[in-house]
């Protein structure tokens, strides 16, 4: 059972680390940036907007 047990434990550990990193990064971004900036994306592709406007 040795190898597979280690593999299982490693899977838990790596997943835990990755999840923790994502949560930390989300928190970190929130501290660094203004909420209105993070939420400022607008729908649509500019390329089409430009075509529509005839450039």
């Amino acid at each position: 059972m040795g190898f597979w047990q280690i593999f299982s434990d490693l899977s838990w550990a790596i997943s835990g680390l990755m999840a923790a990193w994502m949560i930390y990064d989300t928190w970190h971004v929130q501290q660094q940036y203004d909420e209105s900036f993070l939420m400022s994306s607008r729908e649509g592709a500019e390329e089409l907007t430009q075509k529509e406007a005839g450039k």
């Binding site: 597979w4 899977s11 790596i14 997943s15 990755m18 990193w21 994502m22």
Partner: peptide, 23 residues
Amino acid sequence: GVANLDPKPFVFLCIIFLAWLNY
């Protein structure tokens, strides 16, 4: 020869790793 190994850690790793990549 390792019967009934719990698949949960691999399922979890699969989802988290790919989400991390997407992130």
